[in-house]
Design a protein around this nucleic acid. Structure first.
Length: 506
RNA sequence: CGGGGCGUAGCUCAGCCUGGUAGAGCGCUUGCUUUGGGAGCAAGAUGUCGUCAGUUCAACUCUGGCCGCCCCGACCA
């Protein structure tokens, strides 16, 4: 059987990491920049980020948060205040040490004006925001303090991949301070729920809510919660985190307040964030061998109109019909907003044009040619179905069905992703089976293998260390919603309270 | 930061071993044909061969330094 031609070479099965790069290129989402480790996010990719921002921002505001902005630079002494935090981030900090450039004898610019204290380009803002919060918080009446920031951060990574790990990335970071431990913990869980809601209902990316083990915890946190998603190569992607910071940062930054009973107390803080990494997750959840697939709720455009122009007397009528259709489509509403439509008038061959949009992952496209104009029909394609499954239908019927079809695509993508995760999740109670599950059959060129193993674990960090070394497998999370299920840890024979999720991660 | 590889057209790369100042495919532009489909034919544009120095009459080719990128390790939203 001849191999079907795919728009992306190689396919997922042939070479997954290369496929990922090619999808980004074909969909025109982003590209590597002249700056080491930093990416250029192109309009189509950035528009996806803007939709993420819009939806998340609304959810943050509905849960009582307000946006603010804090400095890009953090004085070194702030970062030094929280010991575990320093340990975690020191190795990946970009440091500003000079304030100007001067020409040397050879005419080359060299840094001059050394700063008295180096400035760290924020890898995350707990410390600087903590310092500022200490000035904002005096009384229990100032709490809770619920702040979010949309910003860029820098982590000097050795190896980078577009969206998944770049030296600079865009994100939001929520920072809150509370009068009581209970309230802060409640906030930590609430924001995790927001992330899970967003991932599943907007990105159509099913996630498992859970808690990180001590070894995977955020530097300086008491408790780290996360949502974990399974990519199509069966590896796990952490898609959002929410941290209960206890009083670690409030003690470091001296966030103190006078309580109702007149006591001077340290506040309890949280932080939570998600980044442009989510776009990497979106790609690896939905994209296929023909390119990107974008769920309607976060798509830059829902539908593109492709006029079939043949350079003859019919063209004017076709364009006229397309403009009318564009207006009708815009009058439809999906997700409480007008349906987003583009009319692609570019002077390109029809087939070429259609495939460009398929590769970009637009949820739907509609072709209009002279025969359609005459018959009052349109020719409709859906990205969640094969490019050959296009259908002719009455134009007005098509327009009125749009909202429900878009929702059908949204729901279908989620269901498909969830099914994939379930198909690749197994309860494993035996060490041999566990090792076999996570070992590729072809060692030279590992095939896509593994998945999520739901396995008992006694809580011993040595087990984590060994599995990481042997198989590169880690505890992705201790699921929150799983009922207690007493069992035996297959690695130590010790008792275990519940199964945890093991997997290979990004 | 350790080990390996590579920098030649917008992209992917050949040429280098055996020095004589550049090639292919894709892409781009134009023309003709084709037209409900990622097309064909023809013509054309685009390179200080990463960079600096050395050897030489002559360096993309040989030698050395530097810079950058990729892969494998340690780290990671």
């Amino acid at each position: 059987m001849a191999k079907e031609k795919t728009a992306i070479t190689p396919t997922r099965a042939e070479d997954y990491p290369e496929w990922y790069q090619q999808v980004i290129r074909a969909a025109d989402l982003a590209e590597n920049s002249p700056v080491r480790g930093c990416m250029v996010i192109k309009p189509w990719g950035y528009s996806i980020w803007e939709h993420f921002q819009d939806s998340l921002d609304k959810m943050f505001k509905e849960t009582g948060h307000k946006n603010a902005y804090f400095p890009l630079f953090i004085p070194k002494r702030f970062i030094e205040k929280e010991a575990a935090h320093v340990d975690g981030f020191a190795k990946e900090c970009a440091v500003v040490t000079h304030s100007r450039l001067e020409a040397n004898a050879e005419g080359k610019l060299v840094p001059a004006g050394e700063l008295e204290e180096p400035l760290i380009v924020r890898p995350t803002s707990e410390t600087i925001i903590g310092e500022v919060f200490s000035g904002w918080v005096q009384s229990y009446r100032d709490l809770p303090l619920l702040i979010n920031q949309w910003a860029n951060v820098v982590r000097w990574e050795m190896r980078t991949r577009l969206f998944l790990r770049t030296a600079e990335f865009l994100w939001q970071e929520g920072h809150t301070a509370h009068a009581t431990k209970e309230e802060a913990i409640e906030e930590t869980y609430r924001m995790l729920d927001v992330y899970a809601d967003f991932a599943e209902n907007y990105m159509a990316m099913p996630v498992i809510k859970g808690e990180k083990t001590e070894s995977e915890r955020f530097p300086g946190a008491v408790q780290t919660l996360c949502i974990e998603a399974m990519m199509q190569d069966k590896k796990a992607l952490q898609a959002g985190t929410s941290h209960f910071l206890g009083q670690n940062f409030s003690k470091a930054a001296n966030i103190q307040f006078t309580s109702e009973s007149g006591q001077l107390e340290h506040a309890w803080t949280t932080s939570w964030g998600c980044s442009t990494r989510l776009i990497g997750g979106l790609i690896m959840t939905h994209a296929d061998d023909d390119g990107m697939v974008i769920p309607p709720r976060v798509a830059p455009s829902h539908i593109v109109i492709l006029p079939i122009l043949r350079g003859d007397e019919n063209d004017a009528a076709v364009m006229e019909c397309c403009r009318k259709l564009e207006k009708q489509i815009k009058s439809q509403r999906y997700d409480e907003q007008p349906v987003r439509v583009e009319l692609d008038k570019r002077d390109l061959r029809g087939g070429e044009k259609m495939w460009q949009w398929i590769k970009k992952g637009i949820p739907m496209w509609v072709e209009v040619g002279p025969r359609d104009v005459a018959a009052g029909t349109v020719f409709v394609g859906r990205r969640d179905q094969g490019p050959k499954m296009r259908q002719s239908m009455a134009a007005d019927e098509f327009v009125s069905s749009l909202p429900s079809v878009l929702q059908e695509i949204q729901d279908g993508l989620f269901a498909r992703a969830k099914q994939f995760r379930e198909d690749n999740t197994r309860d494993i109670d035996d060490v041999k089976e566990f090792y076999a599950f996570f070992t590729p059959k072809n060692e030279d060129k590992p095939e896509i293998h593994g998945g999520f193993a739901r396995t008992h674990w006694c809580g011993d960090p040595e087990v984590e260390e060994r599995l990481k070394k042997d198989l590169k497998v880690t505890v992705r999370c201790i699921p929150l919603n799983a009922p207690e299920e007493p069992g035996i840890c297959p690695f130590t024979g010790k008792p275990s309270k519940r199964r945890v999720i093991f997997g290979k991660s990004y």
